[in-house]
Design a protein around this nucleic acid. Structure first.
Length: 593
RNA sequence: CGGGAUGUAGCGCAGUGGUAGCGCACUUGCUUUGGGAGCAAGGGGUCGUUGGUUCAAAUCCAAUCAUCCCGACCA
């Protein structure tokens, strides 16, 4: 292709809103252009790269047993109502109505749509397993789009959904997809870290995220410092294992102490000279129908992800001051597990002072239910300091099992670097930031069940298939590849993703030289080489700079010097290494690279 | 949704009440021509929008929209 046909859209200025390398370079090198916040147009080079990633994904998915289909971008709300997610998905779902005021969504994901398609033709276990995928646009009304292609409101995703008669079959496909994803990212030249992950409100069990390590990553990964162990996990998912399980020294009888105006754990810890580790922190949330009371070690934060997974809560908020006072007889900051007014068991239907605000039919009880959770690390602890459920008072020398009982224990707190690896239980965890580019997980029967997808099993009995779900962000793959492969002059593509393999800089003046360049260009093309000829009427410097900015792997320069020496100059974009080659040597080089 | 900031030419920016500017880009001509050329001459903006204050508003005030940053949420 020639620049006179397929122009460059490079710019000397960085866009003012670009914070990160991939955004800055993709914009400046003319690959993408912003149309609105989180919405990007792909210019010719950008779209070529995008299609190349899609094609790699397609080839590998096909190789590992995927079957490509294409679903509408718009999904009727009815399908989302069937799965129950219409109300659960929050404001990030783009919603719309047609002229008849029928509600739809611009699909943020397609579990429902694909399962609806699958149930239209799946009738027998003999048709399983099947792994259906599509490559298409997804929409999420992100609170804050940022980092160019890394966090958009419209983005292209490959999403696959597999259906299985047995868990063993699901596991087999899941393992294939693990292999498939490794292969995809390797072909793209993208180094990813596969980590154990939380499956969020998708539901399900086994889950692996493919992360790209990056300081701009929006997720935190915890890795075992012992390579032999190899444990890698999303912080959201990582179980907390305390490194030094200290026991409080005192086993004295529990006593009440006055702690006026000491509301935070830090205040009281300072007052008493006791480490926050020995405190019990109470975190209270409520939603329309429930109150969630979580007790965790005082030196830790509650993991809302873990809390959500355990409680099933979706739209909740921190309990307000009145709720806490009514619940505990004390102001916020003095809640503790000893002598809780309403707690006999772990879940209690509260009195009328706690009306449920859920708008349901009259038969629904109008009282909230209290759920009490303890972090496992509180089990068996002695010498604790806890809120006394009395304003300005705490209790010290509190022993679990004697003064209160931690039933309903869960892993509730956020793990951090320095905690013990939950796998080898010997080494400490270290922390890295990461960007998620792919995610595979075992979904289970959540959607197939709710959407009434059944096939007949060998005995002629209905069977609800179990599902897997596998996603890759195409734009994110492009962006993170640039994040990993650039220098101060521009992007550095590998041959698999580069819009063109060779950037042919023509410095030709006069008919002889121009004829020579045209001939070389045609020779390369006829040899099946992907080559971009910069035939613009520009100065050498501009062409060299643009060539390096757009980042094709090989830069070939032809001009007066070529005429004099008979040698063509080849520069390797990545290393900067220069070679002087004859035309045949050049052809040979390109053929083998 | 909370906190902060910014909207002036295609892009990047200056302009604190008195005739709308700079760099790059763009057009034309001449010179130059292997690492972002020089000279000359040009074109292009109802200063985000609406309202207010004022003899006078890009500039002050209000509202509104948009964009960006920090936080909470998410692929």
């Amino acid at each position: 292709m020639r620049a006179s046909t397929l122009p460059l859209f490079t710019s000397k200025n960085d866009p003012a809103d670009a914070q990160v390398a991939s955004h800055r370079l993709l914009a400046r090198a003319g690959y993408i252009r912003k149309q609105a916040s989180g919405l990007y147009a792909y210019l010719p080079f950008g779209y070529i790269v995008h299609r190349k990633v899609e094609q790699i994904v397609r080839e590998e998915m096909d190789r590992f047993g995927g079957v490509e289909v294409s679903l509408p971008v718009i999904t009727p709300a009815a399908l989302w109502q069937e799965s129950g997610r219409w109300d659960i998905m929050g404001k990030e779902m783009m919603r719309m109505e047609d002229r008849h005021t029928v509600p739809y969504t611009l699909g943020p994901t397609h579990e429902e749509a694909m399962t609806d398609l699958a149930r239209s033709f799946l009738q027998s276990y003999k048709q399983l397993p099947i792994n259906l995928y599509q490559i298409g646009k997804k929409y999420r009304d992100e609170i804050r789009p940022r980092y160019g292609l890394i966090r958009c409101r419209e983005f292209t995703m490959k999403d696959a959904y597999s259906y299985h008669a047995t868990d063993a079959s699901l596991d087999e496909t899941y393992q294939k997809m693990r292999e498939c994803y490794r292969s995809i990212f390797e072909r793209c030249g993208l180094k990813t870290i596969p980590v154990e992950a939380d499956s969020g409100n998708m539901g399900g069990s086994g889950s692996e995220e493919f992360m790209v390590a990056s300081e701009i990553g929006e997720e935190t990964l915890l890795l075992c410092s012992d390579n032999a162990c190899g444990y890698r996990s999303n912080q959201e998912k990582t179980p907390y294992i305390c490194r030094d399980a200290l026991q409080g020294v005192s086993t004295d009888i529990m006593q009440e102490i006055s702690t006026p105006n000491a509301k935070t754990i830090e205040d009281v810890a300072k007052l008493l000279g006791i480490d926050t580790y020995h405190f019990v922190k109470a975190v209270i949330f409520e939603d329309k129908e429930n109150i969630y009371l979580c007790f965790i070690p005082g030196d830790r934060e509650l993991s809302e992800v873990k809390m959500k997974n355990i409680s099933g809560a979706t739209e909740y908020w921190p309990a307000n001051a009145e709720t806490i006072e009514t619940l505990t007889n004390a102001k916020a900051g003095f809640t503790g597990p000893v002598g809780l007014k309403y707690k006999d068991t772990d879940t209690v239907t509260l009195p009328a002072a706690f009306p449920s605000t859920a708008e349901k039919d009259q038969n629904t009880p109008t009282r909230k239910t209290l759920h009490v959770y303890f972090d496992t690390h509180l089990k068996g602890r002695k010498g604790l300091v806890v809120g006394a459920n009395k304003t300005d008072c705490h209790l010290k020398d509190v022993n679990e099992g004697r003064d209160f009982t931690a039933t309903n224990t869960h892993d509730l707190v956020v793990a951090h670097a320095g905690d013990l690896c939950p796998q080898c239980k010997k080494s400490a965890l270290t922390e890295t930031r990461g960007i998620e580019v792919g995610h595979i997980f075992k979904l289970g029967k959540k959607y197939s069940q709710k959407m009434n997808l059944t096939v007949l099993d060998p005995n002629g009995k209905p069977l609800v298939p179990t599902m897997g779900c596998y996603g890759i962000g195409v734009g994110r793959t492009v962006a993170t590849t640039v994040e990993q492969n650039h220098d101060d002059r521009g992007i550095i593509w590998n041959t698999a993703l580069s819009p063109f393999k060779t950037y042919l800089v023509s410095l030709a003046k006069g008919d002889t030289e121009i004829t020579f360049v045209d001939k070389l260009y045609n020779t390369l093309k006829n040899a099946g080489e992907s080559v971009y000829l910069d035939d613009r009427d520009e100065r050498a410097g501009i062409k060299f700079n643009d060539a390096e900015l757009v980042g094709f792997p090989f830069i070939v320069t032809v001009g007066k010097r070529t005429m004099e020496t008979g040698k063509i100059e080849l520069k390797l974009r990545r290393t900067g290494e220069k070679l002087e080659l004859t035309e045949n040597e050049l052809l040979e080089f390109l053929r083998s690279n």
